[in-house]
Every structure is written in structure tokens, then in C-alpha cells.
Design a protein around this nucleic acid. Structure first.
Lengths: 202, 202
DNA sequence: CCTTTTATCTGAACAATGTATAGATAATAG
DNA sequence: CTATTATCTATACATTGTTCAGATAAAAGG
């Protein structure tokens, strides 16, 4: 029996993944508020009610898509980060800059994804397993900052202040640009402002 | 004829304002994705189709609510700002802090409002009349920063970097907290980090 | 004051949506 | 080969946004 057990006519094989994947595709195209459960089912070729064996409701499906996007973003960031090699001060600064740029570029490329991730569908409760500390994106940031300190590019005294500051600046600028409240071409200069205020001079 | 021409049975009198006010109320309660045009009309006591004489569709009504919220936020900020009087360095610092705190407190008090304001319903196009430069909230920020400079609390060289930096930090931290990605009690320390990195020592 | 015109709102209808329930079908286990 | 269980379908329902023809009241013109 081959691995590709695609559409046994009645039983789908892996409907759960198909649901997430298709919901991802339609959300990417039309945005989160226009995602229709029925359209997702229709695209897969399955009845609308089949959905409810894997997700209690539409919100749950959207949440599944949203949480998977955080992993995708981290993947992308790490791929870009890996392109910058070396342990010099310049390499550390480049990686810090790259971390901020990839966050932004990813959001600009797929604004509907970004909106979903920080929408009410992906609300993080106090007991959520997707906390900040164990998120890969945040771990990458702390690692970058440590490198800046060890290469002498970031003052030790400033280190503790720069973690949340960097994160909120990057996220805030991205969010404002995606929602149209800030011009897109301002982003890079904001990153420079951040580095300047943290004392990371070039 | 009295001003209070409430419900002449057939003609409402001021349906447009009533629609915005009621949509505001229901959005505050249930969030933007659960706002129903029919519920709004029902609450006012008018037929669902009456809406379409004032707003082309549901999105337009939500946009009207959203844009009015920016004014409400500015009102609140200015009221709080007016409570701090004086031209001393301490007063200037207090006003800067207040500006950041009010933004946050307002969002925490009504997260559904905050979500609407930066949702896809209030997207600012390139020709939007609600641009950053002429927004009252942004003008208040620039005024505050000028005061910090003139009282010697903010280095002139840092002044140009601090405008967008302050804005994105405040918005970013607020956004992350509202969406549950950051703990609420971290906010004030982030403001302190911002002031520290801008060189505004106490 | 009466008539005409215009602005405002109603009623009914439509397609699409999320969701619940009962039953059909296929895979699995005994 | 049969019984059980997981998976999916068919049908139905209430609710939604939206359209359009027509009713009603207000304003304008005589």
C-alpha cells in the first residue's frame, strides 16, 4: 500500500492536515474574516460537517492555522539567520538587523497571516502552551543580543533593557505598517533608531 | 418642536448616529467579528435594510465606529495630560509617561475597541484622511518630546530618533499584551526601558 | 390648505454561512 | 465472517449580509 493514499473516495486519509492546509491557503488569499468553513470543505471535496470531527468549530480551525504560522515564521527567520556566518561584531550586528527585517518582510508579504496571528482567534490564554519564553522567535532574539554583548557591541548594562524593547519595536512598527498607519519605507530607519538608542553604533 | 424627536414611529430622526452608537456598544460587548448588522437594527427598533441608506455595507459601519474611536482615545489622552501641570522637567517626564500609560490603559479597558482600530476594517489607505501626522495622538507625542528637550531631559541628538521609537514601543507592547503574547504587568517596565534607552534618566 | 416630490424606512426574498443530528460507509478488530 | 468503531454524508435549521419593490412620512411648491 503506497504512502499516497489520496482520496479513497469515502475516507480521506489525512483530513485534519488537509483542513489546516486548505484553510491556510484560503486565509492567505482572502483574509481571516472571509474564511468559510464550507469553502474549505468544498475545496477538499468533503462534506461541511466532516470538519467537526477534527475541530469543534471554525474558530478552532483558524487557531490551528494561526499557531502553525508562528512556527513558519521562526523557520523563515532561522533560515535567513543561518545565511550570516561568523562570530565577529559585524556578523552579530547583521544578525540582529536580519531578525528585525525578516519579521517585517514576512508580515508584509502575507499581511493576512500576520493579522490572523495576532487576532482574537489566536488569543494566548494564561495557560497557553505558546508562551513567549519558549517561543523560538524569542529565543533567537535573546541569542542575538547575547552575541552583541559578547562581541562588545552592546553594553552589558543595556542588555536587560533591550530584550522587550527590541521585540515591541519590531512588532509595533510592523503592526502599524500592516494596518496602514505608518509608511512602509519607514521601517528600516526605525530599526536604525532602535540600534542607536541601544548604543549599537556601527 | 423639541430637540428630542425620538422615534416618530416611522422616521427615526438621527438614525446614522444611532447606528454608530449601537454598533459601538455591541462591538464593545462582543468584539468586532460578532457584530451583527441585524442585531444593531433590532436594538434601535428599525428594519435591517434601513442601515443601507447610511452605510454601503457592514464593513463601512465598522469603519465608522473604528475611526471615531481614534478621536475618543485622543480625548482621553488629552484629559489625562491636562491633569499634569507645570513646565518643570519632572512635569514633562510625567506627561511623557502618562501618554504611554493612557494608550495602554485604554486598550486594556476595551480590547475589542483596540482590535477594531487596528483591524482590516480600519485599514488606512494611502489617501486616507486619518494619517499619522495630523492625528491628535501623534501631535501630543511630538509636543511631549519637545518639552522634554526644552527642559533638558532629552538630548537634542536623540530627539529625532525618539518619535517613531516611542510610538512603536507603546503600540507594540500594547498590541502584544492585548493579544496575550506578553504579560500585562510588564508594560510599565517597558516604558522605563524606553526612557532609559532614550537617555531620559530620572 | 392641498398636491407633488423627495427622503426615509419596511417587507419579503435570496444565497451563503456555521452548526447540529441522524444515518451511511468503510476500516478495524475479534 | 461478523461486530465494532472511526469517519464521512445528507439533511435541516437558524442567522447572517444584502437587494429591491413598495409603503410612509416629511418637505417643497402652488
Amino acid at each position: 500500500m503506497p504512502l499516497a493514499k489520496v482520496r479513497n473516495q469515502y475516507h480521506h486519509g489525512d483530513l485534519e492536515s488537509a483542513l489546516v492546509a486548505t484553510a491556510r491557503k484560503l486565509t492567505k488569499r482572502n483574509g481571516v474574516e472571509h474564511l468559510s468553513l464550507r469553502k474549505v470543505a468544498q475545496e477538499i471535496g468533503v462534506s461541511p460537517s466532516a470538519t467537526y470531527h477534527y475541530f469543534p468549530d471554525r474558530d478552532a480551525l483558524l487557531a490551528a492555522v494561526g499557531f502553525s504560522l508562528f512556527e513558519e515564521l521562526a523557520d523563515y527567520q532561522e533560515r535567513e539567520l543561518a545565511k550570516i556566518i561568523g562570530t565577529t561584531a559585524k556578523a552579530a550586528k547583521d544578525r540582529f538587523r536580519s531578525l528585525g527585517m525578516t519579521y517585517f518582510e514576512w508580515a508584509i508579504k502575507e499581511p493576512h497571516f500576520f493579522n490572523l496571528m495576532f487576532s482574537e482567534y489566536c488569543l494566548m490564554g494564561p495557560n497557553s502552551e505558546h508562551k513567549r519564553e519558549d517561543s523560538r522567535a524569542y529565543l533567537n532574539l535573546t541569542k542575538c543580543l547575547d552575541e552583541l554583548v559578547s562581541t562588545g557591541s552592546l553594553d552589558e548594562r543595556m542588555r536587560q533593557h533591550s530584550e522587550l524593547l527590541s521585540w515591541t519595536v519590531v512588532h509595533g512598527a510592523t503592526s502599524l505598517i500592516v494596518s496602514g498607519h505608518l509608511e512602509q519605507d519607514r521601517y528600516e530607519s526605525i530599526l536604525e533608531d532602535l540600534e542607536f538608542s541601544l548604543g549599537i553604533r556601527k
